[in-house]
Design a protein around this nucleic acid. Structure first.
Ligand SMILES: NC(=O)c1ccc[n+]([C@@H]2O[C@H](COP(=O)([O-])OP(=O)(O)OC[C@H]3O[C@@H](n4cnc5c(N)ncnc54)[C@H](O)[C@@H]3O)[C@@H](O)[C@H]2O)c1
Ligand SMILES: NC(=O)c1ccc[n+]([C@@H]2O[C@H](COP(=O)([O-])OP(=O)(O)OC[C@H]3O[C@@H](n4cnc5c(N)ncnc54)[C@H](O)[C@@H]3O)[C@@H](O)[C@H]2O)c1
Lengths: 256, 256
DNA sequence: CCGACTTTGTGCATGCGTTCACAAGCGGTA
DNA sequence: TACCGCTTGTGAACGCATGCACAAAGTCGG
């Protein structure tokens, strides 16, 4: 809790005034989609694609073309009418808006089943989220390197987080420990938390929490099964498959 | 009452007509929250709590009390005015609406880092989602038991899924394999898919897909950091903490 | 240089979800 | 029984997100 000031933090590219206003106005839902567009665009760039139309991109991202254009319009007008978007340009603008012009150091707390998987996962560093710290309470784990990083003791969380300029904390502890771990992360200055424990975390409002709750995801799927099965029973039990008509494909839709 | 419908996996408890109509009308967002309420309520029940008011429950679930009541109203009126809700009653009604009156067998495809964590996780069976099948292509893994279940070869997916009445498929393969695995799951009759691979899956519209994309989650967090940092720069070093004080969380101010 | 064609960017309407506010209903109490 | 205080359930207003439809703006071929 020393008042050490992270100097690396200052590396953030300041946004232009016009962008600031835009960033403030971007709907939450659009931000999530922008991240998806970014991934799709990166993949395209890797394959040598240099230009893309809203139609193509929207197909690849599994969304409506109009929605895609609107989402992109939130960050500015970087397309060329009659042509489409330059992939590189779009990538760099989305990265800028999402704050990906600098790395965000990640700490994982709770190096059990899930924590190991996360620590070993190679996909984060490449996307600007290097895992730089691991924490646990288990004495057998302390000091053991996982995914190249030695596990630190949870009691050192404040010092280590400050030292390594952790900006995102991932909670992968058992549920009973989650709130306490969360509090410690917050005390250590971490303002972003990704929570895997099935617990509702209480945080001050300057801290952003996102949760990943697999049981909830499954229950949502279960709900749709039940609804569908029920409809099937009701509509003179029959026709299940609606023929794969290759079109109208998209990620998560409930069709009336 | 209801006539038993043999048809494969239709062991579902049929909903009453009134419930059917309700289930159809429940907003997607409310379904996700109902799952959270259910978890909180189950925890309360375990601690011997028998009754709860919308105020208490909403606090515990981290939502607005009015929203909670509206969410509950989607599934019926099971509260007592002036008193609150009976925990047991609420639990059973939410379970019924979410289709949790029967088990949903889960298959995990891709037994790598993440697949291992999922297979070993003890939290699913207890919530009605027993993991009954594991698949991979790696010859070294086939036959090896993980979390008590031996890994099957992906080529046997259709037979195994049918035999074990898998209703939810979890994809934890590398991105390039995800679409192919998805297609196979669909061919095997699986209508619900939980996808961890950072890929937009194309599926027929009788299949429900939910994705868990950790990189996207982190990018959303990143966006908020950037926005917040940017505001801080703009508002000449002005107040950071809103509502929460007492905690030494400042240290994040960028330009004095 | 022009006109036809393509695709973006966005105003607008529509629908969904959230929040507010309060009447209705219930238990407790005298 | 009649009153009182408390909490639910919901109608209605509001705000946000989605999808449509089209003018604006650019390219390309001649
Ligand atoms: N494993 C999965 O697939 C999965 C799926 C869904 C949800 N989850 C949730 O993720 C969390 C972790 O799951 P898991 O399977 O990895 O559990 P796990 O038991 O394998 O690992 C938990 C780890 O946290 C450590 N820990 C305990 N208390 C701690 C504390 N106070 N500070 C730091 N570390 C502490 C333990 O030593 C252990 O290493 C749980 O909340 C679980 O409900 C896991
Ligand atoms: N590990 C994480 O923490 C993490 C985090 C975010 C996203 N993901 C994503 O989850 C997925 C799995 O990650 P991982 O770290 O477990 O990867 P991994 O490489 O450790 O495991 C992948 C497994 O899938 C198997 N596989 C490959 N092709 C297959 C096929 N066609 N059919 C069946 N099995 C096949 C491999 O043999 C391997 O066992 C990846 O898409 C990854 O991007 C993982």
């Amino acid at each position: 809790m020393a008042s050490q000031r992270g100097e690396g933090e200052t590396t953030t590219t300041p946004l232009e005034p016009a962008d600031r206003e835009r960033a403030r106005a971007i709907p939450e839902a659009a931000v999530a989609r922008l991240a998806v567009y970014l991934r799709v665009l990166s993949g395209m760039a890797d394959q040598g694609v240099t230009a893309v139309s809203s139609e193509e991109l929207s197909q690849a991202a599994g969304v409506n073309a109009a929605k895609l254009r609107k989402d992109l319009s939130y960050i500015g007008s970087y397309g060329t009418r009659g042509v489409g978007y330059d992939v590189e340009v779009l990538v760099s603008h989305i990265e800028r808006i999402l704050g990906l012009t600098r790395n965000h150091s990640v700490a994982v707390v709770g190096i059990g089943n899930l924590g190991h998987a996360l620590a070993n996962y190679g996909g984060f560093p490449g996307r600007g989220f290097p895992v730089t710290a691991l924490f646990d309470v288990d004495p057998d784990l302390i000091g053991v390197p996982v995914g190249g990083i030695p596990v630190s003791h949870i009691d050192d969380i404040t010092a280590v987080c400050l030292e390594r300029e952790v900006s995102i904390g991932v909670i992968a502890t058992p549920p009973p420990a989650a709130q306490s771990v969360c509090d410690r992360l917050v005390s250590a200055g971490v303002q972003c938390i990704l929570n895997f424990a099935p617990v509702v975390l209480q945080v001050p409002d300057n801290v952003e929490v996102r949760k990943v709750d697999l049981a909830v995801e499954m229950q949502i799927l279960s709900f749709h099964v039940a609804r569908r099965a029920d409809e099937a029973v009701h509509n003179s039990g029959g026709g299940v498959s609606v023929g794969n008509n290759g079109l109208g494909v998209d990620g998560m839709v409930i069709r009336p």
